[in-house]
């Protein structure tokens, strides 16, 4: 059990958890700023980004993919803003126009280019392939201290760990700015804070988390983790610090429980095959959110009656 667990389950669980946390942290602020669907838009436009990167470089190496996806996210954010301002269109519709168009362009490019030699397809982009990130060099828990074995870790693990560390560091560093500008933009502006730059930085951080997580786990988890854990946490407390802590806990729980349920759940039910871990992680996060909606101590608007708001 021990050796097998370290080989086949530990890396995916770690990667899933780190990806979930990296997405949930900026998600807290996106939800409070009513920009939750930016995550949705970003994770759709990652596809054209990686396809263009592939067409330019001819490889599926990690760095060009990350640059391409990040560039696409940036293009999408700028386009949404341009369309919203120039066309005087409400943000939701501007977002819908932008990300569907870019996604369609990505699918078309993918169909037109010869990607039969490499593993690059829409389904993989959507679902990820968490299960395949195994650590065959491990022989047991002792391998965690063995440099030779550690070198065989799936490269996604150090990458997502670095991205997660950057997101945590940025959140901690700009905590006060983020909090003030999220809750009272006018006050933040009055204090002389660069409100526009903070907003853009938040979106850029979200894009970083989305792109890094996407590389490892596919875009469903990315959208689910941007929204579900922070939304559930929002229903637990009125304090931002506590909310962020809850969201990290929920994200971790979703990733671990989702992976275990996907891998072993069908076995317990007498079904021989595992199901998609990415999908299951999203489902578990949804279940947590549903429970928070039903029983969270701060689930209603303060002072709101039970009518339509």
């Amino acid at each position: 059990m021990g050796a097998e667990f370290v080989q086949f389950s530990l890396p995916p669980i770690l990667i899933g958890t780190l990806a979930a946390i990296a997405c949930a942290l900026p998600g807290n602020f996106l939800i409070l700023r009513r920009q939750a669907l930016i995550g949705d838009a970003i994770s759709h436009v990652v596809l054209p980004g990686i396809v263009v990167a592939f067409l330019v470089t001819g490889t599926v190496a990690a760095l060009p993919m990350l640059v391409g996806a990040g560039g696409a996210a940036l293009v999408a954010v700028v386009l949404i803003e341009v369309i919203r301002r120039l066309g005087r269109i409400e943000p939701g519709a501007a977002m819908g126009v932008t990300f569907t168009t870019l996604f369609a362009a990505g699918v078309l490019l993918l169909e037109r280019s010869d990607t039969s030699s490499v593993h690059l397809d829409v389904e993989h982009a959507l679902m990820g392939n968490l299960e395949s990130l195994v650590w065959l060099d491990a022989t047991g828990w002792a391998s965690l201290a063995d440099p030779a074995a550690l070198a065989g870790l799936p490269p996604e693990l150090p990458r997502i760990a670095a991205a997660c560390a950057v997101v945590v560091a940025l959140t901690a560093l700009f905590w006060r700015w983020l909090r003030i500008s999220t809750f009272d933009e006018g006050f933040a502006r009055g204090l002389g804070l660069p409100v526009g730059a903070i907003g853009l930085g938040l979106v850029a951080t979200a894009a970083l988390a989305a792109v890094a997580a996407f590389d490892a786990v596919g875009s469903i988890i990315v959208i689910a983790m941007f929204i579900c854990p922070p939304a559930a946490a929002r229903l637990m407390t009125d304090r931002l610090e506590v909310q962020v802590a809850w969201s990290v806990a929920f994200a971790t729980l979703s990733a671990v429980a989702g992976y275990v349920l996907a891998g072993y759940g069908p076995l317990w039910l007498g079904h021989p095959h595992a199901v998609s871990a990415a999908g299951m992680i999203a489902v578990v996060s949804g279940a947590i959110l549903a429970l928070a909606c039903l029983f969270g101590p701060r689930r209603t608007r303060s002072g709101a009656a039970t009518g339509s708001g």
Binding site: I31, R34, Q35, A36, L37, G39, D40, G92, L126, M127, I220, I221, I223, A224, F226, I227, C228, A231, R234, L235, A262, V275, S276, A278, G279, M280, I281, A282, V283, S285, G286, L289, C293, G296, R298, R299, T300, R301, S302, A304, T306, G307, S308, G309
Partner: peptide, 25 residues
């Protein structure tokens, strides 16, 4: 959106990702 204090965009994102995840499963 009606029964909790979550804004509509959060509800949209939650439903979209969770249902899609369930579909993939």
């Amino acid at each position: 959106t009606r029964r909790t204090r979550l804004p509509e965009d959060a509800a949209i994102g939650a439903v979209l990702s969770v249902f899609f995840g369930l579909g993939i499963v």
